[in-house]
Design a binder for these strands. Sequence first.
RNA 1: GCCGAUGUAGCUCAGCAGGUAGAGCAACUGAUUCGUAAUCAGUAGGUCACCGGUUCGAAUCCGGUCGUCGGCUCCA
Length: 633
Amino acid sequence: MQVLFEGNSVELDAKATGFDLIKKLNLPKSVIALYINEKPSDLRGIIPENASIRPIHIESPEGTEILRHSTAHIMADAVKRIFGNNVKITIGPSIEDGFYYDFDIDKPFEPSDLEKIEEEMKKIIKENLPFVREEISYENAKELFSKMGENYKLEIIEEYKDAVISIYKHGNFTDLCRGPHLPSTGYVKAFKLLSAAGAYWRGDEKNKMLQRIYGTAFPTKEMLEEYLKKLEEAKRRDHRRLGTALDLYSTTDEVGGGLIIWHPRGGFVRTQIENYWREQHFKRGYSIVYSPHIGRADLWKTSGHLDFYKENMYSPMDIDNFEYYVKPMNCPFHIQIYKSKTRSYKDLPLRYAELGTVYRYERSGVLHGLLRVRGFTQDDAHIFCTPEQLKDEVMGVVQFAVDLFRTFGFENYEAYLATRPDKAVGDPSKWEEATNSLREAAEKMNIKLNVEEKGGAFYGPKIDLKIKDSLGREWQCTTVQFDFNLPERFDISYIGTDNQKHRPYTVHRALLGSMERFFGILIEHYAGAFPVWLSPEQVIILPVSEKFNEYARKVNSVLLDNGFRSVLDIRNEKLSYKIREAELLKIPYMAVVGEKEASSNTVSVRTRGKEDLGSMPVETFINKLSESSRIPL
RNA sequence: GCCGAUGUAGCUCAGCAGGUAGAGCAACUGAUUCGUAAUCAGUAGGUCACCGGUUCGAAUCCGGUCGUCGGCUCCA
């Protein structure tokens, strides 16, 4: 029979399998599966006549996914072998960077169990058992899995009543599975189990808590090593570790979980960010406003927060027999500013920005360093504009965000458009119009949009930007949200050219997201080594011995006079010790002063991370500092 | 919130099976006056997260509370 392999016709025996094709064409062993008529398939399967075929290499994303999925099966087999029938298997997909498998088991896994399971997996891999696919009917599948007592599988089968149900076996292990899989267990060359954790069946907390084991697998040992190294690197950059080591911020249970205490060094970085932020907002036509931390229940009733957002709000407090709530958002206050007088179309657009501190209830289990907290300062703004102005405003916001990212060292980002969910307020045609404005704005700016259908909030569509940090991880910062809800609820308006009242369009936006979260991202992005303009200290003066303290003081005050953040280390310690400490604090410049420097009015400059720039006159150093401390635009 | 792990000096951690705590670094004092990632010696520092229980006796065992860490959408 004839088949097409990558467009070329190949002659095969009838009932030939993928293996036969590989043999015939002498394909490398890295081919572990095939696209047969665009459907991922096992090598073991029989190829239909006239099939169009492409190889799947193990290193390709699809190939690695198959590898991980097969490794998940091997892990499930190992767990069954060790824990016997006390375990019920559920699902075990490949995920980004690895795989997991969820088990229903009485006793949660302990760290030592993972080692045992890994050992058993190695045995299974050594046995090189073939993965064999079988297609069976719904009834047979039901019988099979009920005999096995795998009731989770039975539940899944119900969803595939009318489809072809496939099972995969290797050795004595059988799993309901769409496939495809590796030819045999021996193809797994590098894997590692990473952690165990609880996870609800189908992710729903009303369901039973299962026990999940996470692991990963790679085509080669080297790739696995590289991945593990990346995990190490992420740990090294962890903002929680650096936050303590660099004395940036802390949390304490005396204050409460998810509440950040900013130390002087962290506070400095924040001040720099905020100052720059304000300056940029003025430049771009925003007004800076301030609003209180609490507001009366009526306000939150009108805004709808008490209807739609109450579970994230803290309990009210009683003030003179009125209920007040701590604010979870700034919008109602900004709307009040808008409402404080009659607005004309000539006033629009109005852009109110505030570094507004809000408090939201987050479940204790999701709190995470600076990234997920209960009290945080949003770099918030609300834009009130006419429908005609909307697109330009959105473009302005997106451009603003992109410019800010660049300043903070983030060159790459992804944009996501979220459209109307099923439950939403506002006229669908207006949604359409607003969504299109967002889309057109992105198009005009040449920004590729990933669309999340029905992903919008109930009150309007939005564009989110996620930045990519130096390790390639994505972090959501910017959100530009259209709002149909609040203008209605607060009944705000402007007088148009026709002398009639019109409803303004309202856009919420945050660029950096929150100061806390963005700071956390920044710490990890720079691994704590902030650029000179953000660094709490820019220079540390290190006298070689106490004899040169006086000269060190002189240099220090010259630098301070020139507006640089310079500190002195005149402790009675050896130079190398002071250098070590300055390096650990990641101070960008170290200025060493000794005999030679004192007599020639120079400093010996060393930069963070070892580079010795040698001696230079203080004037030269000042020029160098001015240059390197400039804010990147 | 749920599952699991965990909470010992400012930091990193030890403390095996219950007998009232220990190291390194940091801090302080002294000596050393030093040239690019840790000089030496000494001193001080902890109601072992908190509350309760078992016990003659609890950092250690049990229960509760709080915090922290890894997870809890990714469809066989």
